[in-house]
Write a protein that binds this DNA or RNA. Structure first.
Lengths: 213, 213
DNA sequence: GTTTTATCGAGAAAAAAGTATCGATATAAT
DNA sequence: ATTATATCGATACTTTTTTCTCGATAAAAC
């Protein structure tokens, strides 16, 4: 099958999961086809924008009908790499780490957190939502043996760079970072920041403006 | 004092917290002035972009020197509304809810989670990180009495719209949504989605492209 | 069977975001 | 004192992203 190695904008990539959620809801309701116009209305986007986003996945529609819900769902999942799970290690079994370990839906999004690591001996040995917490020293060997590609970083900001360095040294190809620290990574490694503070900044700025007399 | 009611792009708003983290690190190290060139290098951004972002906060620099670290810190905080705390209620005391309740740094970011609410009677009554979990039925009256402006939604997707409706009915002005559901809100209310799946989508898409032979 | 309508897909236009250029200026070096 | 340099701030330019327009097409309405 022809794979779609199209490079698209971050914005498009971030809209696709939204469409996917909607499509899965519709599929559960037995809806078979869907138009970009409909999707656009649901999110208050421009229909053309939705059409272009969908185009990136390689799915083609039919005039007057739209797209098959099942077909589009598959194409989006494939495009995002969510059709088969990537194994991941998590570093830092604090609150955020625990929350992620307990997030069952990740398997739907192509992510399988295999184990957690922490440098605090008090946290080591426990099981969090069925996943073992191991000492950080064991991480490198396990990354190599299990061919882990993704490292999730949920340590405090001051330890983030060290955690990332260790993960990359061990052979991890992508970092999902939750620490509020600017990280340096070598060429070829993927860094994605999931920083709540950025989202919060947008919220509080808007709110201050709205509340201002 | 002249307030800055400048409307800036989402992108700018999301970069400002990054600068702020860096500035606070520098301030702790005793650095007094900083140039946009330096900030840009740290994040691999364009210096002009940093200068424009900074301009939005209203801080002015001096040629050849740059900006005072302390002054810029204050201006960014003020611009983001992080200089005085907004009280917030959290709905949904699941894993993500707990993680947020335990996140101490929020006070630095102008957010004070006052209490949590859950419809599950088993969760009600407990204290999570010192914050009480109350029945959802008590929420509306408390929002009004305490003049709560922000509602944080960490319920499962299928209950998200109901939670949001209840919060807005009660008088909340801004919603910080963690549920993977498309939410409808009335004019004038602020909705900010903090969806991990969007960030994950960018990561897994990039990773599949990198791993592809 | 013809007309109407909703939709796609492609390309053009508009808007937004990011990048480069350049004069002005404040410090440091000579 | 003069020259060199780093930086700001304003403006111009470029690129990217979003939105608009329009012909083609498939179903529905008449």
């Amino acid at each position: 099958m022809a794979q779609h190695t199209v490079v698209v904008s971050r914005s498009t990539l971030k809209r696709l999961p939204l469409y996917l959620h909607l499509l899965e809801k519709l599929q559960a309701e037995g809806v078979e086809t869907i138009s970009c116009t409909y999707i656009a209305k649901e999110f208050d986007f421009d229909p053309t924008q939705v059409r272009k986003d969908v185009e990136a996945t390689g799915e083609v529609g039919t005039a007057r009908i739209g797209f098959r819900v099942a077909g589009l769902t598959d194409k989006i999942k494939e495009f995002l790499g969510w059709n088969n799970a990537h194994d991941a290690f998590l570093i830092g079994a604090g609150n955020m780490g625990k929350a992620l370990l307990g997030y069952k839906d990740f398997e739907k999004y192509g992510l399988n957190i295999v184990a957690a690591f922490d440098k605090d001996p008090k946290k080591v040995g426990a099981k969090i939502f069925g996943k073992e917490v191991m000492p950080l020293s064991k991480m490198p060997a396990l990354v190599k043996r299990m061919h882990i590609n993704i490292g999730i970083v949920t340590v405090p900001a001051e330890h983030a760079q060290a955690a990332v360095d260790a993960l990359i040294d061990a052979g991890v190809k992508a970092i999902w970072n939750f620490a509020p620290a600017p990280l340096k990574i070598p060429e070829g490694v993927i860094l994605e920041n999931a920083r709540l503070t950025q989202s919060l900044a947008v919220l509080t700025n808007n709110l201050t403006r709205v509340l201002k007399p």
